[in-house]
Design a protein around this nucleic acid. Sequence first.
DNA 1: TTGAAAGCGCTAACAG
DNA 2: CTGTTAGCGCTTTCAA
Lengths: 340, 340
Amino acid sequence: MTQQDALTPRATISDVALLAGVATSTVSRALSNPGRVQGATRKRVELAAAELNYLPNPLAKSLRMGRTGVVALLIPDVTNPFYFDMVRGNQAQLRASGCFQLLCDTDESPEVEMQVLQRLGKTADGAILGATRLSDEQVLEVAGSMPLVIINRTVGQVPSVVIDTSSTMSQAVEHLYSLGHRHIAYISGPATSSSAASRWDAIETAGRRLDVDVTKIGPFTPTEMSGAAAADATLNSGATACIAFNDLVAIGMLRRFSARGICVPTDISVVGCDDIFGADFCNPPLTTMTSPTQQAARIATMMLTDQLQPEGARYARTRATLPTHLTIRGSTGPAQISSE
Amino acid sequence: MTQQDALTPRATISDVALLAGVATSTVSRALSNPGRVQGATRKRVELAAAELNYLPNPLAKSLRMGRTGVVALLIPDVTNPFYFDMVRGNQAQLRASGCFQLLCDTDESPEVEMQVLQRLGKTADGAILGATRLSDEQVLEVAGSMPLVIINRTVGQVPSVVIDTSSTMSQAVEHLYSLGHRHIAYISGPATSSSAASRWDAIETAGRRLDVDVTKIGPFTPTEMSGAAAADATLNSGATACIAFNDLVAIGMLRRFSARGICVPTDISVVGCDDIFGADFCNPPLTTMTSPTQQAARIATMMLTDQLQPEGARYARTRATLPTHLTIRGSTGPAQISSE
DNA sequence: TTGAAAGCGCTAACAG
DNA sequence: CTGTTAGCGCTTTCAA
């Protein structure tokens, strides 16, 4: 006993067979297809298995069967609240179909993501890319070698579910407009993010339509820390309201404004994106865009498990679009109302 | 083409062998032990492998080798900010030793946790229990069949790293005492949590020493939602300050106090536990206990990878204790100072 | 330096 | 209903 108790070597199927006095194939059947073996023999096998504390080796099983029952979910940053509901949605849906969730953090890096995907190989039956940082080419390459569903991006024929933010972005502009704002700044996110681009499009279009001045500032990394720089830049731009790429920077901005003695929403209005954990209890509570990420993940998961079905039973849905909505709170408006 | 492009079947090692005109064993050597094969042959193998886009099947490899290079991290709830730094710390340390992180959410359930652990089987070389909900017996049972390190709990000889909160809990009581409080409530967490018990012990002891009245309220589930009930109960108890089992309930309490028109910290002081994401920008910012979870996870990870080493090279550290500290913010104090 | 062959633990024909 | 056998893809003796 070196440091911990010596690990008892795992019993294999042939240990069980030996103890039960049957062939390994019988053990296999008795355990996974109880109907196809006699009651008495099955009993003996079950007893032997229990006695030896037998648990099948999933590696061997998967190697043989060509299926693992595992689905991978790749997330750029599992600690980013935006992805929480994706994790949850995927998990719930997976549990429902008896699959195992393999959660992978890709550290916001395309390299790591690709690496993970390659290493995954046959370890998982398929993967869901929660917010891929890969190039279209890379996505296609991967999609050629394993079942894939991507969220918030469309590339080629790869099954995907996207959350459409553009109409809500227009709503946000209208909301700000109705409050009297005529100059709005958009705090942009990473250039690699495809959703960042479409958000800006929607804002610009809405701005033109309403004759509101819109300026794009950034790009900034989507973190709370970037908020300070973003806040200062916004002030410089002369805008009286801003829409941030995500809640993290929006919250960072709130803090910076407060530190500089600027009052939100009296002096400036702030709109975030994502409605993350914390958006409702920061000060003031953040007006933000709420995405149905949980539902998106559920649908994506269904699409994937569907691909894993035998050809016939397929659902054949390979594309879905979900709308967002605006959640109005204290960070926009004429002045914060302190009721409730 | 049914719905997506047909997946190209993965090339195996024998495909490569065939194309390169060598035996499979040579391919294996050329790829994983380049030194032990002639330059020319290696070249040919590498070319063939590249041509076929060959990637080794990790399942087969692991089955043969008996090692997977994968370490599992089990977390009761990956969306609970308290665990963020564990995930990060484990990930960083794992990457450093070339291992793959298998992140598992156990949904706060002992059943799921056990199930995951069994299913894991030989899929992972070992596991780290971030905050197990298992009974001592169950932990021991698992520890007998796979390398394990547990965080924030000690059971038998199982390697573990615990974060010691008790001295900081005393500090919290002293802090509150020095602000003039003479009646403090402790909002307790789930009965199953072993750390909850030791926190209460420390508080009670400190209370006796300083002649401060301490009452235990609860237990409450450690969520934001429980905050309302906890806040009301605290008010009823007549305490002028409270220490919450964790930040989530503390934040919930803050909201409830605000809703009831009670001013923090003027009317009542609130201390949280964990210093989660959000604790600094809630309103008012929360005084809380900060845990070195990232460091704990790193150490736990080292302990585990250490167990996986050949007998000789071991570090032989099987137990560690880390201290917490108090982070004082606006939710305690005579009155909130609005500088900075 | 390389090839042939065995085997990791399991399941799926195919006989019996 | 059950045993025998082959083989999933890989590494590793053991010979050559």
